[in-house]
Amino acid sequence: MISKNALQRLEQKHPWIGIVFFLDLIGGLALTMKYMFSRTVTMQYPDKEKWMPYPRYRGHHVLRRDENGENKCVACELCSKICPTNCITVVPHENEQGKRRPLVYEVNLARCLFCGLCEDACPEEAIALGSTFEYAAYRSQDLQVGCDELLNAKGKTEQGGCVVSAQFFPDDNARVEAKEKAGYHWWRNIHRQKDKIESSVQGKDR
C-alpha cells in the first residue's frame, strides 16, 4: 500500500509519467482482469439452477382448502368485483349440504395483472396468489384456469428468495424441477465495492 501511495503521489507531481507509461490504460486492464477472475452473476436457469420466489411473491392463483379438504371459497364474488381487469368469473350455487359454493370459478391468467386485490378482498382467505411462475402456454385458452387446477396449484412458499439447483426436462410438458429446498441468495456473487466507491468520491473532492 505504501509503495502504491508513493506512486500515486509521484504521478500527481509529474503528470507526464502517467501519460508516458499509460497508467490509466493499465488501471483499466487491471480492473477487467480482476473481474475476469471474480465469480459470475449468471443464474443458470433453466439448465442447472432455478430461483425460488419470496413468500410475498404474487404468482399463479391458488384456491385454499379448509381442514376437511373442501374448497374454502363461498362464492361471494368479491374477488371478481374488485378485480381491475375483470379476469375472475364466479358463478355461485348451493351444494348438497346447503352451502354456498362456486359452480364455476375461472381465472383468466392472460389478462390478470397480479395486483393481489382479490387476495385482499377475500373474506374467507380462500383465493391467494401462489409461488408458481412457470405456466407459459402455447394457446391463450390454456391460460383460462378452472376450479380444479386452482385447488391443486402450489401455494405460498415458506422460505424463498434463493437460487437452488434444478433439473430441466425439455419434453412436451417442459418443466424445471428444483432438487433442493434451500439454496444461496441470488445477490451472493454481485460485486459490492462500497469502500472503493467512497474513496474514489473523496479523491474527486480533493
Binding site: T32, M36, S38, T40, V41, T42, Q44, N189
Partner: peptide, 8 residues
C-alpha cells in the same frame, strides 16, 4: 467477454 462482464 463473458467472464470480464461477470457472465458465463
Amino acid at each position: 467477454a463473458g467472464h470480464i462482464q461477470q457472465r458465463l
